[in-house]
Amino acid sequence: MNTAPEIAIDVRGLTKRFGNRTVVHDLSMQVPRGAIYGFLGPNGSGKTTTIRMLCGLLTPDEGEGTCLGYDIRTEADKIKLRVGYMTQRFSLYEDLSVRENLEFVARLYGLADPRGDAQGMIERLGLSGREEQLAGTLSGGWKQRLALGACTLPSPELLLLDEPTAGVDPKARREFWNEIHALAAEGLTVLVSTHYMDEAERCHEIAYIAYGELLTHGTVSRLIERSGLVTYTASGGDVSELAHELTDKPGIDMVAPFGASLHVSGRDPAALEAAIAPYRERPGITWTRTEPSLEDVFIDLMSQARDNFQ
């Protein structure tokens, strides 16, 4: 597609209600072509709903936009031809074999050689020798890779991956992400929702959504910078006791344990320092000023969002 716009997803003011509950509210986002775009947010924040609106599975109540240059309201058919959507729940046919699942997709998209293409994908996925295994009997990690394979088989221009690595072990997760990066290097745009911070950090750009509102977006470093959060890490000694004492102190917005250390963050540096001053001399505990982690930023965003929401 030579005439394709440089923006793969361009939507404005998307709103979706179920009954009188607004699940996605006034959401706008732009995803550049070729990017890996992370979509983060707590459970029930509207990630799946947004993705479904992008590929024409749900009709937005308000808002408009384009996906690969096609109107999401009126040109769903064209979008479907060019988008691979991997649902949150495993959605291949468990009673079909690996090969049969891939051939089914290949035939639906009218690929010239369904058998050959399916075989090629089986080899690419490293599933050779398991062609005849029923998809339902694959392990979690293999299921996800197969699902990704099925999405990419018709050579889409955009991948929508909804929590593709939920419940997958770290090694399989890493391999999955290597594959995503390989696909992006081939020119594919990838929108991927996730709850894992390490995955978020592997994205070119991320957006954070809570209670149906897109709170922030940008590169990881920009997000951390923009959060305005100052973080001190306390380590050594009994940090859980310390966490208990620090929680809800004025000037401290967030206390989060990270293994044997504690992240103490606040938006006002002076107030934060005043708040922790009495604990600085506590024996066995060392204090260092650090960058807030992405998780600190998200937890802070979420608590702010809840305040606005209520």
């Binding site: 590929c55 024409g56 599975l57 058919d77 479907k80 031809l81 988008v83 959507y85 991997m86 649902t87 729940r89 495993f90 959605s91 291949l92 046919y93 468990e94 997709v105 639906l108 998209y109």
Partner: peptide, 13 residues
């Protein structure tokens, strides 16, 4: 119920 309809509907059929 099996969740396959969602991906079937996202395909051009």
């Amino acid at each position: 119920e099996r969740g396959t309809m969602e991906s079937l509907l996202s395909m051009p059929i």
